[in-house]
Amino acid sequence: MEDEIPKLYETDGIPAEKKVIYQKWEIPQIGFYWLIAELDKKENLAFGYANLNDDNFAEWGYISLDELTENKVTKCHSWKPCSFEEAQKKMQQYRRERHLR
């Protein structure tokens, strides 16, 4: 699966809502999640979307996967690749089901 994830900068020309999200990392107890669209496996650095349970301050940026694992963030192994637009719908449903903001 990680072999399918584009390298950093490979999706630059694709609008955010159309980018494919290949991985989701999360701290489900507090509603934090990171959606990964690009990956540099050598540096363990990703580009994606971070939402720390606040849609108003969520943003696209670079994410250290080492930092995520050091902070006990877990990768969702059941995640299936989908567009960012679809990922947002999944996350809204997930939050409703768990009564998160």
Rank of each mutant, 00 (worst) to 15 (best):
M1Y: 09
M1I: 12
E2N: 15
E2T: 14
I5R: 06
I5P: 04
K7N: 10
L8I: 15
Y9G: 02
Y9E: 11
E10Q: 12
E10D: 12
G13T: 12
A16G: 09
E17G: 08
E17L: 09
E17W: 02
K18L: 14
K18S: 02
K18F: 12
V20I: 15
V20N: 05
V20W: 01
Q23I: 00
Q23H: 13
K24W: 09
I27H: 02
I27T: 06
Q29K: 13
Q29T: 14
I30S: 07
F32V: 04
Y33R: 00
Y33P: 00
W34N: 02
I36V: 14
I36H: 07
E38V: 03
L39T: 08
K42T: 07
G48V: 07
N51L: 00
L52K: 07
D54C: 04
D55F: 02
A58P: 08
E59M: 09
W60Y: 11
I63W: 00
S64M: 12
L65V: 09
L65E: 01
D66F: 14
D66R: 14
D66A: 08
E67S: 15
E67Q: 13
E67D: 14
L68H: 01
E70F: 07
V73Y: 03
T74D: 11
T74A: 11
H77P: 10
S78N: 13
P81E: 07
C82A: 04
C82D: 03
C82I: 00
S83V: 06
E85C: 15
E85Q: 12
E86I: 03
Q88R: 13
K90Y: 09
M91Y: 05
M91D: 05
Q92F: 02
Q92K: 12
Q92V: 01
Q93T: 11
Y94V: 00
R96Y: 00
E97L: 00
E97D: 02
E97P: 00
H99I: 01
H99F: 03
